[in-house]
């Protein structure tokens, strides 16, 4: 398995990347892209931050960002 060092920051946050566009449900322009954990595992979502509507949901890593070295064989 790959090596993931302990963070030097005491508290950790998920970065929500701003995305251009408009929510088709509520009209908000406050859209963000970030990984979430839900039914079915990890997803990379583009989501309205006002009404929580998901504009896109695509599979993320099966183990999140953890990579198995054996997958490189």
């Amino acid at each position: 398995m790959s090596v993931y060092p302990r963070s030097s920051e005491p508290f950790l946050f998920v970065h929500k990347e701003p995305v251009q566009g408009q929510c088709p449900e509520c009209g908000s322009y406050n859209l963000r892209r970030y990984p979430v954990l839900s039914e079915g595992g990890w997803w990379l979502v583009t989501k309205c931050q006002d009404c929580l509507f998901s504009l896109e949901r695509e599979r993320w890593g099966r183990l999140g960002s953890i990579q198995l070295l054996s997958e490189t064989l």
């Binding site: 398995m1 790959s2 090596v3 993931y4 060092p5 302990r6 963070s7 950790l12 946050f13 998920v14 970030y34 979430v36 954990l37 839900s38 039914e39 079915g40 997803w43 979502v45 989501k47 929580l52 998901s54 999140g64 960002s65 953890i66």
Partner: peptide
């Protein structure tokens, strides 16, 4: 069931003490 979380998204930073990473976590 696995459907329980269908309408719930968890925003989970990796590397916390409840999402620890190998090999030192």
């Amino acid at each position: 069931t696995s459907g329980t979380l269908r309408n719930v998204d968890i925003v989970l930073p990796e590397g916390t003490f409840f999402s620890a990473m190998p090999p030192d976590g």
